[in-house]
Design a protein around this nucleic acid. Sequence first.
DNA 1: CGTAGGGTTGAGAGGTCTCAAAGCGAGTGG
DNA 2: CCACTCGCTTTGAGACCTCTCAACCCTACG
Lengths: 253, 253
Amino acid sequence: MCPAVLKAAPPTLTQQFEVQTAWSRLAVDGLPAAIRQNARLFGSGSQIVHEGDEVPAVICVVGGWIGLSKSLDDGETQLVDLILPGEFIFALGADRFTSALQVEAITDCVVATIPSAQWTQLKMATPELESLRQALSGASRARIAERMLRLGRGSAEMRIAHALLELCLRLRAIGDGADRTFHIPLTQQQLGEFTGLSSVHVCRTLRRLERNGIIDVADHMDVRVINSARLAEIAKVDLNHLCEEILPDCEPM
Amino acid sequence: MCPAVLKAAPPTLTQQFEVQTAWSRLAVDGLPAAIRQNARLFGSGSQIVHEGDEVPAVICVVGGWIGLSKSLDDGETQLVDLILPGEFIFALGADRFTSALQVEAITDCVVATIPSAQWTQLKMATPELESLRQALSGASRARIAERMLRLGRGSAEMRIAHALLELCLRLRAIGDGADRTFHIPLTQQQLGEFTGLSSVHVCRTLRRLERNGIIDVADHMDVRVINSARLAEIAKVDLNHLCEEILPDCEPM
DNA sequence: CGTAGGGTTGAGAGGTCTCAAAGCGAGTGG
DNA sequence: CCACTCGCTTTGAGACCTCTCAACCCTACG
C-alpha cells in the first residue's frame, strides 16, 4: 500500500525547480545545489518522516503535496497542514530528534531532506536563509491559526469554503490555478481530515456549494470557483488579508 | 476595560526570573539582561501586540499568562495557544512586520519584547539561542497540533481533558501544580475559546468530570486531578509521550 | 443594597455523525 | 471485450452531540 521511496531522484528533477517560489527568487547559491543533492522521489502515501523519527532540520518540497498529520490511536486523523511545492517544513519537534507530526506524501512527490549540519553550514554562507525560514514558518503558522479558528468556531460550510480559498490562493502563488480553476489531489476523506469533518459531510457540503452556484466540482476534486466573493463571505475571510497573511508574498485574486 | 501598559517594569521584576525554564538553565549571558531591559508589566486583558501590528522578533513571557488568539469579524474567538511564564513567542507572521495573531495578556503579566535587531545581535553572541528557539517553537507547534487533532476529531470531554492535562504538565514544568493541583486563570468562556466549545458546554463537561470523580474544580478554576489515568484515557493521550512532545524538557507526572 | 460578571442548569433546536445502500470509474484478469 | 473488484462518491435516515436562549444563583465590589 505504501511503496516507500520509489528511487533516487532522476536528473529530470531539476526541471521541477521551475516552480516559482519565495526562495527561487532569493539569490541563495547553495540552496538549489543542496536540494538537488538531497532530493528523492516518494510515492503517494509513503511516509517521509514517521511520527517519532529523528528529523532533518529542513524538508524542502520540490514537487507534489505533503501532508503533516497527527492521529489518535483509533486511527482518527487530523491533517494539520498541507505543504505545496516550493514550501519548506521546519521545526518538527520540541527536541531536534523527535517529530511531533507525521510527514506523508499525499501525491507522488520530490522532496529534499536537509540534515541539520548541512543546514547550519548553508545558513552560515547565506544569512538570508534565516529570513526565508522566518517567512515560511510564519506563513505556516498563520495558515494553521486561520484554520484552527474555523475548526473551533466555524460551520462545515465555512471550513470547506476556507480550505478551498486557501488552497486556491496558495496554488495561484506557485503559478497554478489561474482563473480560479485547480485540482486538489485529496479524496473527500482527506479533505475531511483537513477540515475536521466526516467524508460524508464533506460530500454534502461540496454539493450544496455546487447547487448554489458558488463552485463547480468535476471528477475527483477539479474545483472551479464561480463566485469567489460569495465563497469568501461564507468562509468569512477577507481575500486580500488572507493572501498577505498566509503567503510569503502575494497578490490578491 | 483594557488598561494598556500599567507601567515600566519595577526592579522587583527580577525576582520573577526565578521561574525555572529551559533558557534559565542555558548559559546565555546576554539574554537575562536583554529581558530585564525590555520587560514591561501588562494588565490582564491588555493587548501586547495587536493583530496586524509590527511585531518584535521575540516575545519573552517572564510572568503571567499570555493568549495567542484569532477572531472572526463577529467576535467568535479561538485561543490558538497559551504562553506560560518562561516561554517565548516567535515568528508571529509571514512577513516580519505583520502579526497573524492577537497577543493578549490573560492575567497581569511581565513581558519583554525584543526587537529584531537586538535579537540578531544576541544570536551572534550566543549561537545556543538558535537551539532554544527551535526547542520552544517546536514545542509550541507540537502543542497546537495535538490540540488541533482533538478540535477536529474529539468530543468535548476529550478536548477538556486534554487541555487540563496539557496545562497541568506545563505548569509542573515551571514548578507549579505539583500534586496535580493548580489554578487556571481562565474563565469558562476562555477555556471554551481554547477548546472550541461554548462556555455553557465547558461548564457541563467540567461538572460531568467532577461527578465522575476524575477531577475536582473549586472556585474559579482551581483544578485538582484526582484520577489522572482516567483523565488521560478520556483525553486519549499517553502522558509520557505528551510530556516529551510539548515540553522542551520533561519528566512524566 | 444594587450591579456586574461569572457559573449553573434546563429545554429545545440544529448541525454533524454513523450506518447503510447504491452508483460510478478505473484497473485487472479471464 | 467483458465481468469483477476496489476505492471513492453520493444519498437517505436516524441518532447524538453541542449550541442557543433563558433563567437563576453566587460572589465581589462599589
